[in-house]
Simulated scan of single mutants.
Amino acid sequence: MIRTLQSGQRCEVWIASVNGESAVVYATDHMLLEAPNWTLAGTALVLNGDGKLWTLDVTGGSGGEPTEVPFTGIPDLNNDHVLDPDGTGIFLSANDGHIYRALLEGGPATRITGDDGAFHFLHGVSPDGAQLAYVAIEAGDFTQPGRLMTIASDGGAVARLDAGRLDVGSGHCDGPEYSPHGQWIYLNTESFTSVPGHAQLARIQTDGSGFERLLESDTVDWFPHLSPDGRYATYIRFPSGTEGHPADLPVAVVLVSTEDWTTPLHTWPLFGGQGTLNVNSWSPDSERFAFVAYPFTAPFPDSAKD
């Protein structure tokens, strides 16, 4: 399903820095953009919207209009996309439940995942580009917990990480992402509590050891993203009692040092949720990151209060 803006709602693309500064670099009331990545050159953001992929030039501070990336051979996209470490390719999750690879300049896309009865939601690429980490939802049944999986980036062997070698518990998990040196996979999981939806941040070493909770909080915490130098991380904080990572509610983007996840360095409250920070949005120099807000500029509709 392609998300759209509600009446009176707009989409704002923000860039923030590790020193706490932030600014809107693009705003529109015509298209709902989601989940920014930063290109390896540091000159543009990559976002999805209307089922397509777009690049947004940010070299001038205010980025002009998004430019569509012209893909072929791929269905409508969702907000799970991650750049290949080589900077020329991108891995994409589509609304048919499969993961694809294509060149960032456009052209034909190649499907990576097979027909194994699951929906596949991409989140991480290993630093050497050889492995992808994703969440599998069996038979597209979203009442069932997501399972942490990996697959060779060329479509080779698949491994289920919540059984055997890498055990991250039986609770729903999401957002698996490799650390910059490939030693850890960072994620959010409900395995630490029996409270429905109470996701918390965690990590596990890729050899299956050291599974640990990074932060114990009363809020619902999703999508930990490490800066390329490993010094900082961002995540999105949902209100206590939230189940899943829904759209259109008060949330916050949180910046921490990876030496101390318990003490925010800066926090950006905003109206958003789904689409705000689903994928790693750090700049290559580890100084900035991007996120998306969806404020209402007209009277708040009843449909957005639920």
Rank of each mutant, 00 (worst) to 15 (best):
A163I: 02
G171T: 04
S194D: 11
Q6M: 03
E34F: 13
S209M: 08
G197L: 07
N78M: 11
A163N: 07
F121S: 10
T258F: 09
A94S: 08
E190D: 03
G275E: 00
G197D: 14
T110I: 02
D84W: 08
P299F: 05
L92E: 00
H225C: 09
N280A: 08
G171P: 01
A298D: 06
S209T: 12
T262G: 13
V168M: 07
P250M: 02
Q205R: 15
I90Y: 00
P264C: 05
S227D: 09
W282Y: 13
A136M: 10
E105F: 00
D260S: 15
L83F: 10
D218M: 09
G63P: 13
D229H: 13
W222Y: 14
G129Q: 11
A94G: 06
P299A: 14
T110W: 02
Q200P: 14
R10E: 08
I15D: 08
D96M: 05
R231H: 11
D154N: 01
D86W: 12
G106P: 05
V69I: 07
V135R: 14
L132S: 08
V256P: 09
G197P: 03
V125I: 03
N78D: 06
D128F: 13
Q274Y: 15
G124I: 05
D76Q: 10
L187I: 06
H245G: 02
A202G: 06
D154T: 00
G51K: 11
P299H: 15
P250S: 08
G42L: 00
S93N: 05
Y186E: 04
H198I: 03
T67W: 06
P301F: 04
C11V: 05
S303K: 13
P70A: 01
G63N: 08
L215R: 15
S209G: 06
D141M: 06
V13Y: 15
F211R: 10
G51W: 02
V158S: 09
A109I: 01
G89V: 00
V18Y: 14
G272R: 01
R160N: 05
I204K: 12
T263Y: 04
D128S: 15
P75D: 05
